[in-house]
Amino acid sequence: MATKSAANWRIRVVGMVCSLWVLILGPSVLALEEVLLDTTGETSEIGWLTYPPGGWDEVSVLDDQRRLTRTFEACHVAGAPAGTGQDNWLQTHFVERRGAQRVHIRLHFSVRACASLGVSGGTCRETFTLYYRQAEEPDSPDRSSAWHLKQWTKVDTIAADESFPASSSSSAWAVGLHRTGQRAGLRLNVKERSFGPLTQRGFYVAFQDTGACLALVAVKLFSYTCAPVLRAFSSFPETQASGAGGASLVAAVGTCVAHAEPEEDGVGGQAGGSPPRLHCNGEGKWMVAVGGCRCQPGHQPARGDKACQACPAGTYKASAGNAPCSPCPARSQASDPAAPICPCLLGFYRASSDPPEAPCTAFELDLSFSCFLGFLSSLPSLYLPFPSCLLCFLPLLP
């Protein structure tokens, strides 16, 4: 009964350790953002292309923390003739993808409420459209004038969760910003989208305004990567997230740390077969671990499951695994570290059938056998008289 209770206790402990590992792996290994473009805090002219000229204005204003920053604004709906449509384009510089298969874009923007602008006829919008276009090289100067007519891929229509009314002192929100350089009562929206897979050297991003009064406060382009991690005595390198979205996984092959070897496959396979694997999802988070490594004989875990260290002198570990080293059995000693077995002390022995944890025992010779050895040693020199040697065998006689 006691043995069964102890076994159940060990099972519960192993289960708790595994659950703890799942909890640790998720929040502690954060996704890395490799920034490709970021206008946050820019104070000098950014200089993106606009069509038509003046469709978008680049201005310096104070952000919500009263820091000077560059923004792009479009607000041509107020005062425009009825039925006049807007088609204002803003394009970024050429952005190199740097190996990213999928790019994320984070937008900080503000939109005025159409109801406060006094615009009728349904020409006012509280949205804008996001596009991207791949390219192997930046556009040549002679073709840059027609950039808005090229083949763009729509990412999404971006709608404001919050819009704010026009200032009572100004019928046009953009004019109010130009005059004051401040955002009184400004409500910022933050939206994140992604696009890909990307296969060419770089890309452009464009914003199309079709009749909104909006300010593009900050644009950040970045890709997700899974950070390098040590897990289950395996080292996994930094891995680019997939270009096919969050549900798609990229397998990363791990390398066993020093003095570790791949685990058995669970169906009797030998260690040293398939290496461990971990999967990076589209959001830069590790998941779905397959396999792992274990410490080799003569070595025990160190720093959790991050390293394998040699057994200290006086201890041993006979088999591969993640158990700690054990003290040498009685009448044995391991003088050097990393011992897979403790050799017996002089005058003691361990039979070949004995397990490594068995204590060593002394040689014990039978009296008759001792006499027999004495008899054999006397034959060449004839030092012992024959009758005295017969005495050795007297105990053997019936």
Rank of each mutant, 00 (worst) to 15 (best):
P398H: 12
P329Q: 06
V257M: 02
R102M: 10
A320D: 00
A146P: 05
S144P: 03
A247M: 12
R10L: 15
V290M: 12
S223V: 01
R231A: 08
P141I: 04
R125V: 13
R102P: 05
S242Y: 09
E73Y: 01
F386G: 01
E162A: 13
G211V: 09
L391P: 02
S19I: 10
E263P: 03
A82G: 08
E261G: 09
V288Y: 11
F109C: 09
F195Y: 07
L90S: 06
E42I: 02
G254H: 04
L216V: 02
S248R: 10
L394H: 12
L373N: 08
L221S: 05
K285M: 11
L373C: 09
L391R: 10
C371W: 14
D63I: 01
A271R: 15
S167C: 11
T210Y: 04
P329R: 03
A271S: 13
G284D: 05
R183N: 01
E162N: 09
G273K: 12
N189D: 14
L382D: 15
K4C: 15
V155S: 08
L346D: 07
P355N: 05
K306R: 12
V14L: 12
W89M: 02
W21P: 00
W21N: 10
T69Q: 09
G176P: 00
Q296T: 11
T129D: 13
R102Q: 15
G181R: 00
V103W: 00
S19K: 12
V267R: 08
A247Q: 14
A227W: 01
G54R: 00
R97I: 01
A362W: 14
C311R: 00
F233W: 01
G181K: 02
G245H: 07
F233H: 04
W9F: 09
D139I: 13
T361A: 15
R98G: 04
L384D: 08
L49D: 14
C213F: 01
C280T: 10
A7R: 13
